[in-house]
C-alpha cells in the first residue's frame, strides 16, 4: 500500500503557516471561551441544567428571540435587497452619503441606537405618538424588538448582496429581453435565482446577529418577563445574580440552537448550489 502523503505540494506558498495561525487564532479567540462555557455546563446535573435552561420564563425568551430575529432578518432580506439594488444599479446625487449611511448600524454603539430608537418609538416620541393614535404600540412590545433588530441587521444584507448584484452580467438581462421576457419575468426568473446564494447568506448573517443582539434591544423591549424578555438579557440577569451556572446553561442552549440553524441554512444553500454544478 502506498503511504498516505500528508504533505501535498501546492503552488500557493504558506499553507502550513496560515493553517497554523488559523488554528491558534480560532482556539484562543473562539474555542477557548466556548470550552469554558461547556465546562460550566458539564459541572451541572441534568436536573439543574433543565431547571436553568428550560424553565417557562427561559422558554418564552427563546421563542421571542428566535421569532423576532427571524422576522427582522426576513424584513431586511426584502428591503436590504432593494437598497443594495438601488446602490449598485444607479448613481444619483448624494450616492456616497447614502452608501455610508448603510454602514452606520455597524459603527454605532448598540446602546446608543437602542436609546435613540426607544426615544423615537415611545408613546411620546416622533414616530411613537402618531403610531399610538393609530393604535399601534411599538416601544416595549415584540414589535419594538423587531424594529431594533431590523436596524442592526440591515448592513449585513446590503453588504453581502451588493457585490453579487454588481457581478451580474448585463448580457443575461439583454438575452432574457430578446427572448421576450418582461422586466418582471427577467427579474423573477433570471436575476433573483442568480442572487439567491448571496441573499441567503446575507439573511443568515442578519439572523445570527439578531439572535445574539443585546444592547439595542433591551431599551426598546421593555423586558417584561414571559413577553418581551430576550434570551441575552436573561443571561445577563443571571450573571448579575452571580448564578454563573444558569447563565452558562442558557448560553449553551442558545449557542447550540444558533449553530444548528446556521448549519442547516448552509447545508440547504450548499445543496442548491451543487445542483448548479458551481461551488458558490
Amino acid at each position: 500500500m502506498a503511504p498516505i502523503r500528508l504533505k501535498r505540494y501546492s503552488i500557493l506558498p504558506g499553507f502550513g503557516l496560515t493553517l497554523g495561525y488559523t488554528s491558534l487564532y480560532l482556539s484562543l479567540i473562539v474555542l477557548l471561551p466556548l470550552a469554558a462555557l461547556a465546562s460550566g455546563v458539564f459541572s451541572m446535573t441534568w436536573a439543574e441544567f433543565t431547571r436553568a435552561a428550560f424553565s417557562a420564563r427561559v422558554m418564552a425568551s427563546y421563542k421571542v428571540t428566535v421569532l423576532a430575529s427571524l422576522a427582522a432578518a426576513l424584513i431586511n432580506a426584502v428591503f436590504g435587497f432593494i437598497v443594495a439594488w438601488c446602490l449598485v444599479r444607479y448613481r444619483f446625487p448624494g450616492w456616497r452619503v447614502v452608501d455610508a449611511i448603510v454602514d452606520l448600524p455597524f459603527a454605532l454603539p448598540t446602546a446608543v441606537s437602542g436609546i435613540v430608537l426607544t426615544a423615537l418609538y415611545s408613546p411620546g416620541g416622533w414616530f411613537g405618538a402618531p403610531l399610538a393614535k393609530l393604535g399601534v404600540k411599538v416601544a416595549y412590545t415584540e414589535l419594538g424588538i423587531v424594529v431594533a433588530l431590523v436596524f442592526i441587521g440591515l448592513p449585513f444584507v446590503v453588504r453581502t448582496v451588493a457585490p453579487a448584484i454588481e457581478d451580474l452580467d448585463p448580457e443575461i438581462e439583454q438575452a432574457a429581453g430578446c427572448l421576450g421576457a418582461s422586466r418582471w419575468q427577467t427579474f423573477s426568473k433570471v436575476l433573483l435565482p442568480a442572487l439567491m446564494p448571496a441573499l441567503t447568506s446575507g439573511f443568515t448573517m442578519a439572523f445570527a446577529r439578531a439572535l445574539g443582539e443585546y444592547g439595542s434591544v433591551i431599551f426598546i423591549a421593555g423586558n417584561r418577563p414571559m413577553k418581551t424578555e430576550i434570551t441575552a438579557l436573561l443571561i445577563v440577569t443571571k450573571l448579575e445574580q452571580f448564578d454563573y451556572k444558569a447563565a452558562s446553561a442558557i448560553a449553551a442552549v442558545m449557542l447550540a440552537g444558533s449553530f444548528a440553524l446556521l448549519l442547516a441554512i448552509n447545508y440547504f444553500e450548499w445543496r442548491r448550489g451543487s445542483r448548479h454544478g458551481s461551488t458558490a
Binding site: D169, E171, Q174, A175, C178, V190, P193, A194
Partner: peptide, 19 residues
C-alpha cells in the same frame, strides 16, 4: 428603448446558470 424580439447570440453565451 428595449430589446426587440430577435434571436441574439452573445460572444460569452449569456446562458442562465441557475437553469
Amino acid at each position: 428603448p428595449g430589446p426587440r424580439h430577435v434571436g441574439f447570440v452573445f460572444q460569452h453565451y449569456a446562458l442562465f446558470r441557475t437553469m
